[in-house]
């Protein structure tokens, strides 16, 4: 009797930080009853569902849904003012200006050449970044899935950059890639010449892609690793009994069963690559010249530096269209991949 009471008393104060926070939160949430009990009395318990959904829906409606709809309006108006009532309706003029081009392969022949520069830069970025991401994330996931010592350590190391903010990532690499940086020191010590990594257009495009892969690879590695680990072990046993070698096992078991996960990785990385902005903004700010100017930065510049909100909104409508197509493609193809 005594001992049980002692236990209860010993447990009750809960002085660890977590339990203190829990109790504070619990007390605070309990106050909600003073607000919500009277409401419930008035509307009845079934309609309380609306009350619960309301705050989220309000924020969602005002800051996500409404802006999405408003974007259409902006895309079809022009003027210096950001206030909707001061803008003049111009129909498809903005879209026409963006799409006006003599030769779509040469941005110089386009009316809005910066936009097309951004489109072609983004296209190059998306294709190379996603390819490299998938290759390296798959290789890393396979390496981490094998029976090596220190797996947890390696997994953490490969994942760590994912947590870093784009600004930090960009500064880490800016320091490494500058003219007197470590990488150039290494090249000089090997007898080479200093390379203008961030001063040359081609080099900048290259490094922006590499930094993107570096910063995100760990994320996709984790998803692929989870996919690999969900493949039943007895399939591998069966194939080794059948005398299949490692390559055959990979091709006939691992790859097909990993396909749905690979697909998720492909789509997620594609959608994110199309919107590349943050680390590039800090690392090169779109330069040198327009070498690393991507679509989102074009929208940002057009809207907030040049205050041409109509043109920027039209460009973001086109971007949204591309993202929509990618999402639809994901749903369509995803179903097919799942079916096989």
């Amino acid at each position: 009797m005594d001992t049980t009471e002692g236990n209860i008393i010993a447990r009750k104060p809960g002085t660890s930080p977590i339990s203190l926070i829990t109790r504070a939160v619990s007390w605070f949430l309990g106050l909600g009853d003073y607000i919500f009990a009277p409401i419930q009395k008035r509307v009845g318990h079934v309609r309380m569902a609306y009350v619960f959904v309301l705050p989220n829906l309000l924020i969602f409606g005002i800051f996500i849904l409404f802006p999405m709809l408003l974007n259409f309006y902006y895309g079809f108006t022009s003027g210096e003012s950001i206030l909707p009532e001061n803008r003049t309706f111009v129909g498809t003029e903005n879209l026409e200006k963006l799409l006006q081009c003599d030769n779509y392969l040469d941005p110089n022949t386009c009316d809005e050449d910066l936009f097309w520069r951004g489109v072609s830069n983004t296209g190059l970025y998306v294709v190379s970044e996603v390819t490299l991401l998938v290759i390296f994330a798959l290789t890393t996931a396979l390496a981490l899935n094998s029976n090596v010592a220190g797996r947890a350590f390696f997994r953490s190391v490969f994942f760590y950059p994912v947590l870093l903010s784009p600004v930090v990532v960009a500064l880490i690499w800016k320091w490494l890639l500058q003219q007197d940086g470590l990488l150039n020191a290494f090249i000089v010590s090997m007898g080479g010449e200093r390379a203008p990594f961030l001063l040359d257009g081609g080099w900048s495009q290259f490094w922006v892609i590499i930094v993107g892969v570096w910063a995100q690879m760990g994320f996709y590695t984790l998803i692929l690793l989870a996919g690999l680990q969900s493949i039943p072990a007895d399939l591998y046993e069966a194939s080794s009994i059948d005398g299949a070698n490692a390559f055959r096992t990979f091709r006939s078991i691992t790859l097909p069963l990993l396909m749905p996960t690979m697909f998720v990785v492909l789509v997620l990385s594609l959608i994110r690559a199309v919107q590349v902005f943050d680390h590039v903004y800090v690392l090169t700010n779109g330069g040198p010249g327009t070498a690393t100017l991507f679509i989102v930065q074009y929208i940002y510049r057009t809207a907030f530096s040049n205050r041409n909100f109509g043109l920027a909104a039209a460009a973001s409508l086109l971007l949204a269209l591309v993202l929509l197509l990618l999402t639809v493609a994901q749903l369509r193809l995803g179903r097919r991949v799942d079916a096989t």
């Binding site: 969602f60 005002i62 800051f63 996500i64 849904l65 409404f66 802006p67 999405m68 408003l70 974007n71 309006y73 902006y74 950001i82 206030l83 909707p84 959608i271 919107q275 902005f277 989102v296 929208i299 940002y300 809207a303 909100f309 920027a312 909104a313 973001s316 971007l319 949204a320 993202l323 999402t327």
Partner: peptide, 16 residues
């Protein structure tokens, strides 16, 4: 809207 990034609604969201 799971896939709608902030970059797409930048201008109207700023207006709001």
């Amino acid at each position: 809207t799971l896939m709608v990034p902030v970059s797409v609604v930048l201008i109207p969201a700023f207006l709001v």
